[in-house]
């Protein structure tokens, strides 16, 4: 038994459909719990006051914005190498979620930045990188929409995703070089020294877990929808011929 068995569309839908309500339920519980914990049961920051609490939305959405693209890169590679349709459709299903996460990170960042920096927007490297990431998502989704033949679209978007990833990383370094920026250093890292205090860290972890599970649930639902759309198209094509 190999993991690739689940690449069969029917098996994929049969396996994942019962999981979705559970994933959704747990993720909503985690998000509600984490946000309540973060908003009402953590102290205000001594410099930033209560504005710091938007952190519980900002950090998870920013994290997801990047990781969703990373997931699309992996599923695109799987499609190009192994030609499993579900993989390509999962990448297609993930893109709109990724772009929403990116927009959320930008908006929550602007709301947080306004009282801190006195401006909604600054051409700071991190902010700018997310804006560029937003454009990459936009182009990727537009290419999917523009091409009629689904396999052609899957091939071309996968190639774009790979090339885009290289240029996205390149842009990140270029933007760093271009402006040193206002943004505080990363809030979370594996190196504990840099991290925020534990009292903020635990509710943030709960929120991140909630975001991740929410993403998984949404991607499974959307992938199942994409599979059904493809099935309808395939059946129609057979009926016509």
């Amino acid at each position: 038994m190999s993991i690739w068995e689940y690449a069969n569309p029917k098996k994929f839908i049969a396996t994942t459909t019962p999981l979705v309500p559970w994933l959704l339920g747990v993720s909503i519980a985690l998000l509600v719990g984490g946000l309540i914990w973060g908003f009402f049961f953590t102290p205000d920051d001594f410099r930033q006051g209560s504005t710091v609490k938007i952190f519980y939305l900002h950090v998870p959405s920013a994290l997801m914005a990047i990781n969703v693209w990373f997931m699309m890169l992996i599923t695109s590679l799987v499609w190009l190498v192994r030609r499993h349709h579900v993989s390509a459709l999962a990448a297609r299903a993930a893109a709109p979620i990724g772009i929403i996460m990116t927009v959320m990170a930008l908006i929550t960042g602007a709301i947080w930045g306004q009282p801190m920096w006195g401006t909604w927007w600054a051409w700071d490297p991190r902010l700018t990188s997310f804006l560029i990431l937003f454009l990459f998502y936009l182009g990727y989704m537009a290419l999917w929409e523009a091409i009629e033949d689904p396999d052609t679209a899957a091939d071309l978007t996968s190639v774009l995703c790979i090339v885009g990833s290289v240029f996205a990383v390149l842009s990140r370094y270029a933007v760093n070089f271009w402006n040193q920026g206002l943004h505080q250093p990363a809030s979370l890292s594996l190196d504990k020294e840099e991290n925020v205090a534990d009292v903020f860290w635990y509710p943030a972890l709960v929120c991140i877990a909630g975001f991740v599970l929410l993403f998984v649930a949404l991607v499974l639902m959307r992938t199942a929808t994409e599979i059904r759309v493809r099935r309808i198209k395939a059946l129609e094509a057979r009926m016509r011929s």
């Binding site: 560029i132 885009g164 842009s171």
Partner: peptide, 8 residues
Amino acid sequence: LVLPLYVP
């Protein structure tokens, strides 16, 4: 598609 790739 091309303009974001032109950024760097």
